[in-house]
Amino acid sequence: MDLTVRIGDVTVSNPVGVASGTFGYGSEYEQLIDLKSIGALFTKAVTWEPRPGNRIPRIIETTSGLLNSIGLANVGREGFAKEKYPFLSGLSCSTFVNVAGNTEDDYARTVEWLDEHAPLTGYELNVSCPNVKEGGLSIGGSPRMVEVVTRRVRAVTDKPVIVKLTPNVTDITEIARAAEAAGADALSAMNTLVGMVIDVDACRSVLPGKTGGLSGPAVLPVGVAIVYRVSRAVSIPVIGIGGIDGPDSALQYLLAGASALQIGTANFVDPTVTDRVLEGIRSFLSHHNLTAAGEIAGLLDR
């Protein structure tokens, strides 16, 4: 049974990854799961300079969902290299650093610096965070900006470059094609959906920044549809993200055309979800007499 996934020149051991922002820098979950069983770990976002993050409250539960406005709180590139890199570099799973920035310069200079001081498997460009005023969503919403940022990062590293797409756009396939044209090795789809919760008694928005990013089971059908469309618009691998909480939701993404997956919010609920998903994929392959995870997409609507 072949569970491996190719991302650029790299072979990832299995399709089950953990999503940026939900798994810290790995060490937080070391006591709870066998990190060797994960295909790929996507780190909490790293920015050029440290960021304190947004005002509180930062998270609120919604119906089957989680609305967050963390604001890319992180220790910056130097803190990452000093405090987080030693642990990550010792892991046997693939490790992708999620890189975020305010300007197109930020992404390329951060990747270039990390390539020299803290090289891991590759990078995931967070051009789609809904919770920062500059960069993030404003870059991720523009095909031209995504192309520029991706091309500049492509020029400074030989490692795999994955672009994480936002669903908060008119036509996500246009952004996907721009990233592919600029040399991205894969696409992650999707980041959180912009959402808002209002406390009716207080007549106030719950999050200080008014809006946040929605994740969790509530967004699953949106993510599956996006992966279905994006995987048909590009020829590079698409990594499905959004609401995966077990084998069924994971297999929906693989059937829709995802080559790999990232599990996010569900890690908070059940730290063993990655194991359950991987086992579910194995059972599905056996049941359908398939030999490779990559064959699952071919079963859809035959």
Partner: peptide, 24 residues
């Protein structure tokens, strides 16, 4: 007390403002 996401230090969701460090 604070609303928690992961409860293991990964998500940065349950912070409170403090003196020193990065403020949270």
């Amino acid at each position: 007390e604070q609303t928690m996401g992961c409860a293991v230090g990964a998500c940065m969701g349950c912070v409170i403002p403090v003196h020193g460090g990065n403020g949270y």
